[in-house]
């Protein structure tokens, strides 16, 4: 079955692929040392030029190189946070949907509690307690964003559990754990792919916001968010400090959204087609 790889997926994926390459090969792509300061008057707050593609910041550091290293932060937070939420969301959703009963009851109450909290403020509070660093950021975002996935997976399980091939496995004595992970889960993944992809964009936004507020990646380590912070006092004349990180965040999140929407298009009709 040939999938029609539609334009959105290709476009979005190309951009992300490009960013991934930049992130992995950061030391080679960056033109200068992102941490090197130059406090001389003619080096600080320079507009973009051939030497500094994106200009320099208030401490004379090359913005382009900082952005390049910032790509590592954004992508890794995005992927790892979502991975954590996937693990939690899929496990709980699968258990909830398959077993029903009190297991479902408990997990769903937990989901409702998660939904009640304004997530971002929860994250800010936890980070304040735990201390702001990139690992904490990843973990906390992951721990607070699994609820939607959990519901999705549960819904798929509720339907799939009644399919004849599941009954058949039960008759044949296949243990429940294997039924959940080997039989049902592979068939439940389609909406998960879509949701997870869209969530990566969200996670990146959260990290950027946290870093902007000083609660995420701490200076001098560069993150798109904290470059923005550095720039906020100089917006009127050092526009490059705001434009470039802003654009980067925009383009990245947009690309993930494009991939997610494209996946939704590709996967949805196939789901419906599975019955004659």
């Amino acid at each position: 079955m040939k999938d029609k790889l539609n334009k959105r997926i290709i476009f979005g994926a190309s951009i992300i692929a490009l960013m991934a390459i930049v992130a992995v090969f950061a030391p080679y792509v960056a033109t200068q040392d992102p941490l090197e300061m130059d406090l001389s008057a003619d080096a600080r707050l320079q507009a973009p030029s051939l030497e500094h593609f994106f200009g320099t910041d208030s401490l004379g550091r090359d913005v382009f190189s900082r952005m390049v290293y910032g790509t590592r932060i954004s992508l890794s937070v995005g992927f790892i946070a979502v991975f954590i939420s996937l693990v939690i969301g899929i496990s709980l959703g699968g258990l909830s949907g398959y077993y029903g009963g009190w297991v479902d009851g408990v997990i769903m109450r937990l989901v409702e509690v998660m939904y009640c909290f304004p997530t971002f403020f929860l994250i800010m509070m936890v980070i304040t307690f735990l201390g702001p660093n990139i690992v904490n950021v990843m973990i906390v975002i992951g721990l607070t964003s699994w609820a939607g996935l959990c519901r999705l997976v549960r819904a798929e399980f509720l339907t799939l559990r009644e399919r004849d091939f599941v009954y058949s496995a039960r008759v044949q004595g296949v243990p429940n754990g294997r039924i959940i992970f080997r039989h049902i889960l592979p068939n439940a993944m389609a909406p998960v792919y879509v949701s997870a992809t869209l969530s990566v964009g969200g996670a990146i936004l959260v990290e950027s916001a946290l870093s902007f507020l000083g609660l995420g990646v701490q200076i001098p380590t560069p993150s798109w968010g904290n470059i923005l912070t550095a720039g906020k006092n100089y917006i009127d004349y050092a526009w490059w400090l705001t434009l470039f990180p802003g654009l980067a965040i925009l383009v990245t999140v947009l690309s993930f959204n494009l991939i997610g929407e494209g996946l939704r298009e590709v996967l949805d009709p196939k789901l419906r087609e599975s019955r004659r």
Binding site: F165, Y167, A169, V171, Q172, N187
Partner: peptide, 17 residues
Amino acid sequence: DADIVFQDPFSSLNPRM
């Protein structure tokens, strides 16, 4: 032992196996 064959040959086989 008793085993079972269901009505719908489309949904009684796991499409991914």
